[in-house]
Simulated assay, not measured.
Amino acid sequence: MAKNVFGEPIMVCSSYPLTGFYRNGCCETGPDDLGTHTVCAVMTKEFLEFSFSMGNDLITPRPEYTFPGLQPGDKWCLCVSRWAEAYKAGIAPLIILEASHEKTLDYISLEELVKFAFI
């Protein structure tokens, strides 16, 4: 069973839109997840625009991939590297720690993550 950043069973990040590398609603990861989609983040307009400017369009619906496009307030499993880029740019979205995979801690300390906890 996958664990979150607290070492507890991981919670669902979002069922709609359905998120996760494995599209099971959870920010689980494995050897085939090269992007390490482990951070359950709450989207903001600023982050979505930032991601778009970095070449990852999370806004535009893609029906062929059953992707509705994201809006502010949606929860989504982000690549840990994209979240870290947004953090360095000063626009990192808040995180649902209970739904963020423990692998995130290989890249960002729990101390830093807690500062962005969605409450």
Rank of each mutant, 00 (worst) to 15 (best):
M1F: 11
N4E: 11
F6H: 06
F6V: 07
I10V: 08
M11P: 02
V12K: 14
V12E: 15
C13T: 01
S14K: 03
G20M: 07
F21G: 02
C26I: 13
T29S: 11
G30Y: 07
D32Q: 14
D33A: 08
G35M: 11
G35S: 11
G35V: 03
T36D: 14
T38P: 01
T38D: 08
V39I: 15
A41S: 04
V42H: 06
T44S: 14
E46W: 07
E49L: 12
S51D: 10
G55T: 13
N56H: 10
L58M: 13
R62F: 07
R62Y: 09
P63L: 06
P63N: 05
P68M: 01
G69E: 12
G73E: 03
D74W: 05
L78S: 05
L78T: 09
V80L: 11
R82V: 01
A84D: 10
E85R: 06
K88T: 07
A89F: 14
A89T: 09
I91C: 14
I91T: 10
L94D: 06
I95Q: 05
S100V: 04
T104A: 14
T104Y: 09
D106G: 12
I108W: 00
V114T: 12
K115S: 08
F116V: 02
F116P: 03
F116K: 11
A117D: 12
A117V: 13
I119C: 05
